[in-house]
């Protein structure tokens, strides 16, 4: 999930999705009083309505945030699974369609043994390592977006 997209979504979604009771108490001024509003800075708005509360109360906004996190993680996993399936699932087909490859030798060893008995393992570890970095980045982005205390501290 990218930061700017998520914030744009927040601005659009905040007002309509807020429950009616809270909207009344905070938005409608009492008779005889005039509401004076300051410029809407990001920090003050975030402090009053932390997105974690939207998530806790399962508002439309909170749900939208959750869906974006789950979809980001799922997209990452599906993408890497597709690469894995293409490589792992592709090898038997390749050996079936191109019989010369079965007898191909690399450094004196049959190609199948070099790939399946050796190279595939470091590749798995590299994939796993890359996945962990990406998944943790998705979670950091989400935390930046959602947890205002955390985000404020990090944005100075």
């Amino acid at each position: 999930m990218s930061g700017p997209d998520g914030r744009a979504g927040e601005r659009e979604a905040t007002t309509p999705s807020r429950p009616a009771a809270r909207a009344n108490s905070s938005d409608a001024p009492a008779p005889g009083r005039t509401r004076v509003t300051g410029p809407r800075t990001r920090a003050s708005r975030r402090l009053r309505h932390p997105v974690t509360r939207e998530i806790d109360e399962q508002t439309g906004l909170g749900e939208a945030y959750m869906r974006s996190l789950v979809q980001a993680q799922l997209r990452l996993a599906v993408r890497l699974c597709a690469v894995l399936a293409a490589v792992v699932g592709g090898l038997p087909v390749l050996f079936a369609l191109v019989p010369e490859l079965r007898e191909q030798r690399v450094a004196g060893l049959p190609l199948a043994w070099v790939l399946l008995g050796g190279l595939v393992y470091p590749w798995f570890v590299a994939c796993g390592w890359w996945y962990v970095r990406q998944a943790e980045r998705n979670e950091r982005d989400f935390a930046d977006l959602v947890d205002n205390r955390w985000a404020d501290r990090n944005r100075g």
Binding site: L76, A77, L80, C81, L84, V88, P110, A112, W113, L116, G117, V120, Y121, F124, C127, G128, Y131, V132, A135
Partner: peptide
């Protein structure tokens, strides 16, 4: 050589588990 897939799958299963299930 076909049986080399056994250890490959036993390891690769953890990669799938990592991506879809672990956390």
């Amino acid at each position: 050589a076909d049986m080399l897939w056994l250890p490959v799958g036993w390891t690769g299963g953890y990669l799938v588990l990592l991506m879809l299930v672990s956390a």
